[in-house]
Design a protein around this nucleic acid. Structure first.
Lengths: 198, 198
DNA sequence: ACCCTTTCTATACAGTTGAATAGAAATAAT
DNA sequence: ATTATTTCTATTCAACTGTATAGAAAGGGT
């Protein structure tokens, strides 16, 4: 009854995600996007709502993948799971480790000028999600340690989020997915101390 | 003998710096740049070498101002001077504290795609300069403490640079020049410990 | 075979981009 | 006043932007 689509939607979003991740939103033209993703220009409009709509789908894809593959263990874990997450930021193979930094960081920096409400909500939601996972893990840890308060989960979680951003930017500016290692080590040592000295 | 320029060069570069800082490089058109800086389009080309040339001058201005006003005390100082610098990142009034983040961070993120050698060198130079100041201050501190090695100046300095980047990105994405406070507090506490427990 | 629906290719569109240039304007020296 | 030099204004330029659309292509149903 219908002509079949020439692309796989899932794969297309995945490709779009990688393309925006590497090149950013503004610098990536629709025609270049067409080639990098395999989606034809018509479909970008009719199926995704244009360039920004495609980025939004890419952001959702990125968020879901990050939550599932990287953040999830922290939800019922403690400091060891946070440390594993942080190490992933500078460990080849992890999806949160890239010489292009982080799609959410890059988009957030761009959107400070673009001021797109949709993009703002998408990036903000991601960092809220990450902070929640950090907070959960720290609260779990605190409970397991018997409540002797040596740190504030909320404060420490907020600091960790900024640190994650810093690692990503360092990786991107240096074109080296391990460039942020020094800060990761420092944060991991700090966390290990909080656990050991309970 | 000549028609006088309609703008003050120093003020113009300063304005360009602020404009690029807020809006970024790609998103800021030459015509908008004209209005924000008071420089006419002709002068942007003939005096600064076009849009990129103007950004390069703005980066130099930013770097010199940051070194003079913010980094300099660390050169002959120690951990207290580092703490003062870090606090400045989230303290209104300091030039390194802005809801637009950091011109060097923003430019670095953009240039990962633009791949301009000149911009790359300018931003890289800035972070090298900052890391050198951190390292110097930490070495000064170590010497003053009598050489009992409790930390590696080079490692700690590298971590501090990434942390600074993270604070800036946090400030920009939240449009709040104090948004990165939690990480600043954490790093300052860590530094204070290293000093106290000597 | 023919039709109907969906998707794709190719082109067109108005708006913007950074850069370039020609002529006007402003100054100082003569 | 006239001239020489520099700077500015206004316009032009080709290239590119994201979006829109018309007609071709590809299927399945009859």
């Amino acid at each position: 009854m219908v002509r079949p689509k020439s692309y796989d939607r899932q794969k297309a979003v995945e490709n779009a995600c990688l393309a925006f991740w590497e090149h950013g939103f503004q610098a990536l033209g629709v025609r270049e996007l067409e080639q990098q993703t395999g989606i034809n220009q018509f479909a970008i409009r009719s199926e995704f709502g244009g360039k920004e709509g495609l980025l939004l789908e890419a952001l959702n894809y990125y968020r879901d993948a990050a939550i599932t593959n990287e953040m999830a263990p922290m939800w019922d874990g403690g400091i060891p799971e946070i440390i594993t997450f942080l190490r992933g930021l500078v460990t080849p193979g992890s999806m949160t480790s890239s010489q292009f930094g982080c799609l959410m960081v890059n988009t957030g920096v761009e959107n400070a000028r673009l001021k797109s409400p949709a993009l703002g909500e998408a990036t903000r939601g991601y960092w809220t999600e990450l902070e929640s996972h950090f907070t959960r893990a720290l609260e779990n840890e605190l409970r397991a340690q018997g409540g002797k308060v040596r740190f504030s989960p909320a404060e420490l979680a907020a600091a960790l989020v900024s640190a994650v951003m810093g690692v990503h930017v360092q990786n991107r500016t240096q074109k080296d997915q391990t460039a942020g290692r020094a800060l990761v080590d420092l944060m991991c040592n700090r966390l290990a101390e909080l656990r050991a000295s309970s």
